[in-house]
Nucleic acid binder design. Structure first.
Lengths: 179, 179
DNA sequence: GTCTATAGTTTGATAGAC
DNA sequence: GTCTATCAAACTATAGAC
C-alpha cells in the first residue's frame, strides 16, 4: 500500500482493514504510524539485493558478470514492482535517517560489487559514477513504463525484463566490450 | 510544495499560508484541490523541455548533438530540482489522464528528437529503448543524489551537472562514437 | 491481542458578510 | 476577491472492557 500510494496516502484505517483487525489493534503492535512504516520498509528491503551481489561476485570475465548483473537486476525489478516503487519513494521522501537505512540495508552490498566491476570494465572512469549509470540504465526503463505507451515507438514488449536486459547489456557491451 | 511533499502531503491550508490568503479564498480561484494541482502541474511543465528539443534539433554531427543534449538535460535538471521531482512523482502517482498530459506536454517533443538521434547513432538498435536509456543515464544521477553520500566513493562533485554531463557523454561516446 | 468508543486534530470544502 | 466561521469527514492516537 505504501508503494502504491505513499506514506501520507495510506491511513492506519486502510492498513487495519487490509490486515483484518481494528486500527486500535495496530497500536498494540506498533507505537505509531511512523514506526509501522519504518518496520515495513526494513522488512521490504531485507535481503532484496543479495541476488544482485551474488551475480556480481560470481566467476567469469567482467563482461560475463556484467551480463549476469543486468539479468539479475532486471529480473528483480520485474518480479517486485512494489520494491522498486518503495525505493523511488524513499529517494523522494526519505529523510537522512531513512536514506541511510536504505543505503546500508539495500544499496551498499551490490554497490560495492558494482564499483569493483566498474573498475575492471573502465579503469579510467569514476567507478562510483559508472555504477550509478549502470543502475539507472536499468531502472529508468521500469520507472517510465506507465508513460511510455503514450510516446512514439512504445510497445508492450519494452516492459519485458528480458528485453530490457538485452538492450542494456548490448549498450554497455558496446561501450566496454572491446576497449 | 507538491514537489517536496507530494499531493497528499500538502493541504489547502499549507498552500493558503504559503501564498498569504485564506484557504477559502483558494476556492475562489480553483474548484477543488485536484484542479489546483492539475493547473500547478500544467504550469510547471509548460515549455520546460523546449531547450532540450532545440539542442537535439540543431546542426552538427550526431555526436555533437548528443553532447549538446546531455549538457542541456543535465543543466535543466540541475537548475530545477522541483521539476525533476514533480516528474518522478507523476511517474509514481499519475493516473492515465495525468500521465498522458505529462507525456504530451513535456516528453513528446524532446522524445521524438531523441529517437531520431538514436536512429542516427545506432540504426540497429531500438530507438525508443535507446532514447529511454539516454534519459535514464542522466536522470538517475540526480535521483540518487540524496543517498549517494552514504555509498562508497560518493563525493559532492558527483552532484555537479557539468561533471554528470561529462561522464554520461563519455559513456555514450564510447558506445556510439566510432561504430 | 482484539475490540468499541472516543478524544483531539486536521482535512477538503461551503456559507455568507464585506 | 478576501475574510471569518463552520461543517462533515477522515485522521492519529488513546482509554478501557473483554
Amino acid at each position: 500500500m505504501f508503494a502504491a500510494r505513499g506514506y501520507s496516502g495510506v491511513s492506519m484505517r486502510h492498513i487495519s482493514q487490509a490486515v483484518g483487525i481494528s486500527a486500535a489493534a495496530l497500536y498494540h503492535h506498533f507505537p505509531d504510524k511512523e514506526n509501522l512504516y519504518l518496520e515495513a520498509m526494513a522488512h521490504a528491503f531485507t535481503d532484496k539485493a543479495a541476488g544482485i551481489t551474488a551475480a556480481l561476485e560470481g566467476s567469469g570475465t567482467s563482461l560475463e558478470r556484467l551480463e549476469r548483473f543486468v539479468d539479475s537486476f532486471t529480473g528483480l525489478m520485474g518480479d517486485d514492482p512494489d520494491f522498486r516503487a518503495l525505493l523511488q519513494r524513499e529517494l523522494l521522501d526519505g529523510d537522512e535517517i531513512r536514506l541511510k537505512l536504505v543505503a546500508e540495508r539495500v544499496f551498499l552490498g551490490p554497490f560495492q560489487a558494482m564499483t569493483a566491476l566498474a573498475e575492471e570494465l573502465a579503469p579510467e572512469c569514476d567507478p562510483h559514477m559508472l555504477a550509478i549509470s549502470m543502475a539507472g540504465l536499468v531502472l529508468f526503463h521500469f520507472e517510465t513504463a506507465p508513460v511510455r505507451r503514450f510516446l512514439p515507438g512504445g510497445r508492450p514488449e519494452h516492459n519485458d525484463p528480458k528485453i530490457i536486459a538485452r538492450h542494456v547489456t548490448r549498450l554497455l557491451s558496446r561501450a566496454f566490450g572491446d576497449g
